[in-house]
Nucleic acid binder design. Structure first.
Length: 491
RNA sequence: GCGAUCGUAGCUCAGUUGGUUAGAGCACCGGGUUGUGAUCCCGGGGGUCACGGGUUCGAGUCCCGCCGAUCGCCCCA
């Protein structure tokens, strides 16, 4: 007897039925549109990479959350790995499903750096994989949209000021693309905040505050938890990292400041060393704020936040997260000025961000911004242009297949723009009323009732207006194209 | 890796202190005497009650195990 137990989709993956596929398409189309309108060009890379690409320059913990991939042709390799593992040695798979895009991007840029414009603006959107425990807003397979600006537009002999301005401009450019998308989807400035920080600024504060450089990475990680831990607990840990009391106090004060509307007043309460540290920090964030405001991002949306440090080791400057209340970060990114060089390219500053589809979908649902099912099918291009119905006579039944085929046929000259989405029923009933009902439910724009081998009656299902006169089958397609307003090109 | 909650039809869920053959709505298919549709009426298919044990005369219901899902912790590229 056969084992009929259904095989379920792997943990953290999704089966997308038509309406869910349409929902995903709605998001990816918005991503494409926003990035193209902001001047980014689409690129893409492999969905699996050599594991080295991620282990080389990333931290240790990352490997454990990578999905390993083996070649089915490499039996010996697999066996060798098995033996290593049996001995308790580290044995990563030779390939990894990509957990992020930035390393691929860095490699791609490095390989052609000499011939690429400065700046180069690339975007990509596709599937990524992380072997984490799924929970709200987090799955093991997800889509991620990335926008990156690589290189800076600089004069022949740039001054430090030129570099700083170009840097802030590029930083603002990626954030503007990200915010542009959110606004296009209907989120307003009341719905989200762009929380920004700067790793170099933090470094300067650490230095002035008396922390040894060796402790910086651990301190960045610890700062990530400042809002989650009780202040006393956080301070105890900070002390262990060699953070002086004054600096601890500054972190706690400044953290609250990020959530306090009246920043100037709060800042005014800091005196002496605290105030000095604060100006080091805030002054280095001033240029990026200025550029963001110039890019049309409302000042109320921008929040300087000492908590935002990002886990990734490769960030070197500005870092940011876009937070929608009640959800985890919907997007995050930052500046990584050393990474291109690390992949064998010329020293090139770069900045970028990623946005996942999982949290974004939750946000759109929370805010009621996800279009209705019917709208989605239309947006995804799945509503038929014409639903062809036979009037039930043998003559019409016989003519129907060729009517359908003709409507569907596209020509190379028009690049398929003259091809129509045409459907017919698969039901056996000849009840025209029922078939019209089916046509309407399919979301079709027109119904074409085949009357004979030579004529149809057209009905606009949106307006419910039916033609008095019949249309010859020979001119049906042209007539429908005309009524759909698609005759403006070619011919 | 840890914790909490939950698994009955494709979906949303009923199902009494354990008691005949497990139900509804939606969806799907067909019909309402062969041509005009959102309503309505009639009919139909579809469930080894996640899976495996146990208690019992009898288990969807109680107990144990297991798998899965959701939410949270850890982590977050």
């Amino acid at each position: 007897m056969a084992d009929n137990k259904p095989i379920q989709p792997p943990t953290g993956t999704r089966d997308l039925y038509p309406i869910e596929a349409a929902r995903r398409r709605f998001i990816t189309e918005a991503w494409r549109r926003a990035s193209i309108n902001h001047g980014f060009e689409e690129v893409d890379g492999p969905t699996f990479e050599s594991t080295e690409l991620y282990t080389k320059k990333s931290g240790e913990g990352i490997v454990s959350e990578i999905f390993g991939v083996f070649s089915g042709k490499d039996e010996q390799g697999v066996k060798a790995l098995g033996e290593k593992l049996a001995r308790g040695e580290d044995a990563p798979a030779p390939y990894a499903l990509r957990p992020e895009f930035t390393p691929t991007l860095a490699r791609m840029y490095a390989a052609r750096a000499a011939s690429l414009p400065k700046p180069t603006k690339w975007f990509t959107a596709g599937p990524f994989f992380r072997a984490e425990r799924p929970q709200r807003g987090r799955l093991r397979e997800f889509l991620q949209w990335n926008c990156d600006v690589i290189g800076l537009a600089l004069p022949e002999k740039p001054t430090a000021e030129d570099v700083a301005r170009a840097t802030a401009q590029a930083d603002a450019e990626v954030i503007a693309a990200c915010v542009g998308l959110l606004r296009e989807l209907g989120l307003t400035e009341n719905d989200f905040k762009v929380r920004i920080n700067d790793r170099r600024a933090m470094g300067a504060v650490f230095e002035k505050g008396g922390v040894v450089p060796e402790a910086y990475p651990a301190l960045f990680a610890h700062l990530d938890r400042i809002g989650k831990l009780a202040p006393e607990v956080w301070r105890t840990e900070a002390s262990k990292l060699g953070v002086p009391d004054t600096l601890q106090l500054w972190f706690l004060n400044t953290m609250q400041l990020a959530d306090n509307r009246d920043q100037s007043q709060f800042a005014g309460e800091m005196t002496g060393t605290l105030a000095a540290l604060f100006s080091v920090w805030s002054e280095s964030l001033a240029p990026i704020r200025k550029q963001l405001e110039a890019a049309g991002i409302p000042s109320g949306v921008i929040v300087e936040d000492v908590k935002i440090v990002r886990g990734l080791a490769y960030y070197t400057g500005m870092v940011f997260e876009v937070i929608v209340d009640g959800e985890r970060a919907v997007a995050g990114g930052g500046r990584y000025d050393n990474l291109i060089e690390l992949f064998g390219g010329p020293s090139t500053p770069a900045v970028g961000f990623g946005m996942g589809d999982v949290v974004l979908s939750l946000v759109l649902q929370d805010k009621g911004l996800m279009p209705s099912d019917a709208e989605l099918m239309q947006i995804a291009g799945q509503s038929p242009d014409v639903f062809v119905i036979s009037n039930g006579t043998p003559e019409a039944d016989a003519a129907l297949p060729s009517v359908l085929a003709d409507l569907r046929r596209g020509t190379r000259e028009s690049r398929g723009r003259d091809s129509l989405h045409a459907r017919r029923t698969s039901k056996t009933t000849k009840n025209v009323g029922k078939l019209l009902q089916e046509a309407e439910r399919s979301g079709a724009h027109f119904a074409a009732i085949v009357e004979s081998s030579g004529e149809v009656t057209l009905k606009n299902l949106r307006t419910r207006e039916q033609d008095q006169a019949r249309t010859p089958i020979a001119s049906l397609k042209a007539e429908v194209l005309k009524r759909l307003g698609r005759m403006d090109r070619g011919s």
